[in-house]
C-alpha cells in the first residue's frame, strides 16, 4: 500500500525524464534559432530602423519593394548563378579528382596529394578572398600572367562587370573543393572491391563499371554534397565583400551581401529581414525539390 504512490511517481518520473533532458536543448534552440526565425518574419512586416525613424507597420510593402528593386533581382540571379556554377562544376571536378586520387596505388603518395587538394579548406575564406583579389589584378596579377603564357589575352576579372561573379565562383571552387573530394574519396574507398572484380570477370568496360557500380554507390555522398552546396552557396558573403564589394556597379551583389548592406550600412532592418525571409523560402523550395526529385530518381 505504501508503495503505490511512489511507484506511480517513479513511473511519472521515468516518462518525464526524456522531456526534462530535452528541455535545455529546446530552450537553446528557441532562444537562438526558432525564436529569431519567427522574429525575423515579424520584423519583415515593419519599417525598422535602429538609429533614426523607429518602427512603423508596413504589411507586405517590404516584400513588394524587394521585387521591384533591380539590386534584389541582381542579387538573386547572382546567388543562383553561384549555386548552379558551384554545383555544376565543382561536384564533377571533385568527383574526377577523387577518382584520380583513388587510383593512386602508393598509400603515401595518395596522402600527400589528398593533403594538397585539402589545403584551402584549412585556410579561411577571408584570407583566400584577399589573396585571390590580388591574384586577379588585371595587370600585376598571377592569373593573367599565366593566361598570357598560354596565349590568352588579359582578362578584367573582378574589375569587369561581366566577369566579377565568375572570378568569385572560380575562387570558391578552389577554396571548397577539398571538402567534397575527401568525402567522395572516402565513399569510393568504401565500395567493396568484390563488386569491381565481379564486373571485370563479366568483361564490363571501365566506363560501364563507373556508371553501373561506382556512380550508384556514390549517391548518398553526392546527395549530401549537393544539399550542403546549395545551402552554403546561398549564404556566400566573404568573397563578395572582400573581392568586389558587390561591384563593379551592382554586378556581383549576392543575397548575403545585399542583406548585410541594407541592415548595417543603411539601417533598413525590416527590409533586410524581408530579403532574408524571401531567401529562406526559396531555399526551402529548392531543397525539398532536390530531395524529392533525387529520392525518386535514385531509387534502385
Amino acid at each position: 500500500m505504501e508503495n503505490k504512490p511512489s511507484r506511480s511517481f517513479s513511473r511519472w518520473r521515468r516518462k518525464s525524464t526524456p522531456y526534462l533532458m530535452l528541455a535545455p536543448i529546446m530552450a537553446f534552440l528557441v532562444a537562438f534559432m526558432f525564436g529569431p526565425i519567427l522574429y525575423a518574419l515579424w520584423m519583415s512586416f515593419w519599417r525598422w530602423s535602429l538609429v533614426g525613424g523607429g518602427i512603423r507597420f508596413l504589411g507586405l510593402t517590404n516584400y513588394i519593394n524587394a521585387i521591384s528593386q533591380p539590386r534584389f533581382i541582381r542579387s538573386l540571379t547572382n546567388s543562383t548563378y553561384y549555386v548552379l556554377a558551384t554545383v555544376v562544376f565543382a561536384i564533377p571536378i571533385s568527383l574526377f579528382i577523387a577518382v584520380a586520387l583513388n587510383g593512386i596505388i602508393s598509400r603515401r603518395l595518395r596522402t600527400v596529394f589528398t593533403a594538397l587538394y585539402f589545403l584551402p579548406i584549412v585556410t579561411s575564406m577571408v584570407a583566400a578572398s584577399i589573396v585571390w583579389r590580388h591574384m586577379y589584378h588585371p595587370g600585376a596579377g598571377v592569373i593573367n600572367f599565366f593566361l598570357g603564357k598560354l596565349g590568352i589575352p588579359a582578362q578584367g576579372w573582378t574589375a569587369d562587370p561581366g566577369q566579377a561573379m565568375l572570378a568569385i565562383v572560380i575562387m570558391a571552387i578552389w577554396k571548397n573543393l577539398g571538402f567534397s573530394v575527401v568525402i567522395f574519396l572516402a565513399a569510393l574507398q568504401g565500395i567493396p572491391s568484390i563488386f569491381y572484380e565481379a564486373a571485370r570477370i563479366d568483361g564490363a568496360s571501365k566506363w560501364a563499371i563507373f556508371r553501373r557500380i561506382t556512380f550508384p554507390l556514390l549517391q548518398p555522398a553526392s546527395l549530401f554534397i549537393l544539399v550542403t552546396s546549395v545551402i552554403w552557396g546561398f549564404q556566400i558573403f566573404a568573397p563578395v565583400m572582400l573581392m568586389t564589394e558587390g561591384g563593379p556597379g551592382d554586378s556581383s551583389y549576392v543575397l548575403g551581401y545585399y542583406i548585410y548592406q541594407e541592415a548595417f550600412a543603411f539601417d533598413r532592418m525590416g527590409y533586410a529581414a524581408a530579403l532574408a525571409f524571401s531567401m529562406f523560402v526559396i531555399l526551402i523550395v529548392v531543397t525539398i525539390v532536390q530531395l524529392r526529385g533525387l529520392a525518386k530518381k535514385w531509387q534502385y
Binding site: L29, Y39, A40, M269, M279, I284
Partner: peptide, 30 residues
Amino acid sequence: QEFKGKNLFFIIILSSMMVPFMVRLLPLFL
C-alpha cells in the same frame, strides 16, 4: 530514449539545418 513526440521533435530540430544564418541574423543581433 523513448518518448511520445520523439520523431516530431527530431524533425523540428533537423529542419533548422535548412535555415540560412542570415534569417536569424537580425533578431540575433537585436
